[in-house]
Every structure is written in C-alpha cells, then in structure tokens.
Design a binder for these strands. Structure first.
Lengths: 198, 198
DNA sequence: CATACTATTTATAATCT
DNA sequence: TAGATTATAAATAGTAT
C-alpha cells in the first residue's frame, strides 16, 4: 500500500475514501452509540471533520478540557493533572510495547550475534504501579526519569519520516484486547524544534 | 441501521468496527499522505485514538487555525502546565520512535543475520523480564543494545516496510488526578532530530 | 473537489472452535 | 474471550462527467 503518486488520482482517492470513512464512523456511532470525532486534512490542505455529537465535545473530552472552549487561550486553573496521568499512562503502555519488541529482538539477537554485557541495576519499579495511584511528587519523579531516558535517546537521535509511519491491523496478533492506537510519532511537528546534538 | 441492543454484541461490534475504521484511516493517510486524527470513546467510556502524524498535531491544526493551514504560528501565552504536557509528549514521541526502530530492526535482522552471524552464545535474557521489574537504567541499556545492533546492521538503510503492529493493552484510561501545582520549573530542552540513515 | 457507473476487492455478521 | 471461517453486504479503483 503506497502513496498514490498522481496528484489528481490522489485527490479522487482521498475524496472517495474520506466519504467512506465518515460513513463508517457514522455507522459506528449509530450502532454503538459512542462519541467519535474525525479530523482530516485533504491533500490540498482543506479540513474535513466528522463528529458525534460533534468534533469539539469529543476532542474536549479527550483532552480533558470538556468544560472549556478553544476560543480562549486559558486553561482551567486546575492543572492538567488528569491529562498528565493520561500521558504517563500512555508512556507506560509504550514502554511496555517497546519491551515486547525488545523481547522478540532479543531472541533473534541471541541467534545472530553476541551481545554486550548486561547492565545491572537496582530497580525501583517505578513503573510498576498504576499511574493513577501515584501522587504528584511521584509523578514528577517519574517524569524526571523519563526525561533522563529521553536524554539518553537524544545521544543517538533518530527520526522517522512522516511518510514512513504506518499501522497495519490486518495481521493476527499474539495478544489481544483493546487498543489505544495511534499517535504515531515521527511526523513533523509544529512545536518540535529540530536541533542536532553531538 | 439501529443501535445494537445487546451490550455484549455492541462491544464486539465496536471493537471490530473500530479496528476497521482505524485501518481505513491508516490507508487513507498512507495513500494520500494526509494528516488525520480519530478519537472515539468505547461504550465503556475508554478513549481510543488514531493519528497521523499524531492526534495532537492534527487536532491542534484544526482548532488553532481552523480553515487556514499556515505554518509557523504558535499559540500565545503558553502556561507552564502546557510546557509540562509538551515535554511529556516529547518523551512519549521518543519512546514511540524507539518502538518503531525496534520494528525496523527486527526486519533488518531477519535479512542480515546470515551475514552477521559472528559469535554465538551470549543470550543474557536481560529483556526477558517485565518492564515493571526493570529500573530505568536497564531500560536505557536495553535501548542501547537495540541501537548497537542497528548500527551494525545499518550500514545500509533499514527500510520501514509494512510492519504489522497492534497496540494491544488493556488498561484503564479514566483517571482521577491529584491537583497539586507541581511545576518543576523546567526550561525548554533541545529536541534532537536526525535522519533514519544517520 | 464531487459524483456516477461497474468490476473487483474488502469488511463484516453470524457462526463455530 | 479471542480467533477462524464463510456467505453476504459494502467499499473502492478506474474512468468519465
């Protein structure tokens, strides 16, 4: 499944698939009585959206800003601790995912080459508990550790091109359950300032 | 087309259709190289999302600039709490990148392990333990190994081919936050961006 | 950017393991 | 509870307007 190269064909494909996607979303909302929002920008940059009961309520709920409109720049005085917890939960899940990846890789690695010595390590099992159970101080501490990890990552910076991000759901999987998919990193981001680090 | 009355059937239908919808969205993003975000709450109230390149940038583009699509603008008066969230988002993205790197590595390994068959042996099962039991130092070490392997195998490019990925983790998402103004007085950090082939 | 037409591909509801 | 199977319904690519 590759990008359609011809601009005209791409636009046609976009139009039709967007229609189909919104239809699917509408069916999902109807059949299951759930809130859903879709935002998509056409190849030409034009925004299209679908929402049940509307885009903004759903996005607001997702961002923990249900009581706020985006017409103002202010957030509620109450800090986004709920959001923080969600973000940390996401990080936790992703670390777990990375671990699963590492497991598969490790098996192949054992067959293919010898690896360097393992690092020892006292583990505080900081990630063991649910984020919801942690106090703010612990959240801040956890953030500190994650930042440390991030700085390690910065040592060998890697970027994925936006076009390389992909998600295929067609194959069977060993585990199953609910997925909070998406948020595929790697795209160019407005807020991210790209800088090199040696 | 009416709402499925049976709760169980409704949940099943939701799961299936959500999977299909996200797949469609991914295909649309791939074929047409467009930004798209989907947010949906399950019948049980759990949030699910898909985004290319991520939910936040798409939502941000939609909310902040409406029908416009100029680049380079920033919202004025960013609060410290927003920077906190951004910082966490950055970390989250980096971890995502690590996961994707692992995926690519896995494929590269499959192609290159024949030639890379150096020494055998050392299968220290560092990664066999759960992340919950690992300290951050070990996580960092785990990552370092992946990078080492990549650098060995990546004289040529590691292609991001179609890889099957399912984010499958049952986890609670509704969370109660502790509202303490826990700002850490953090400054902005540099973000590293590099190319996949570095 | 949208839509009509049709051959073909794909998703899915019901069912079963 | 998840996954596999399959007949059926739906989406879509190619093309034209």
């Amino acid at each position: 499944m590759k990008m359609v190269t011809d601009r005209s064909c791409r636009q046609v494909t976009f139009s039709k698939r967007r229609t189909g996607l919104f239809k699917k979303a509408n069916e999902l909302a109807t059949l299951c009585a759930v809130q859903i929002a879709i935002i998509v920008f056409s190849p030409g940059g034009k925004p299209f959206s679908f929402g049940n009961p509307g885009v903004e309520p759903v996005v607001g709920r997702f961002l923990n800003r249900g009581d706020e409109h985006h017409d103002g720049q202010q957030r509620p005085q109450r800090l986004p601790s709920e959001r923080l917890v969600e973000e940390l939960n996401g990080i936790q899940r992703r670390i777990q995912l990375e671990k699963k990846r590492g497991e598969a890789l490790e098996k192949a690695l054992a067959r293919a080459k010898a690896s360097a010595a393992a690092a020892g390590g006292g583990s505080d099992s900081l990630i063991s508990r649910s984020v919801e159970e942690m106090g703010m101080e612990e959240l801040v501490e956890m953030r500190r550790r994650l930042v440390d990890l991030r700085e390690q990552l910065d040592g060998r910076a890697v970027e994925m091109e936006a076009s390389s991000t992909l998600l295929l759901l067609s194959n069977k999987s060993e585990s199953a359950g609910d997925s909070r998919g998406g948020s595929w990193g790697g795209g160019r981001r407005r807020r991210s300032v790209a800088k090199w680090r040696d």
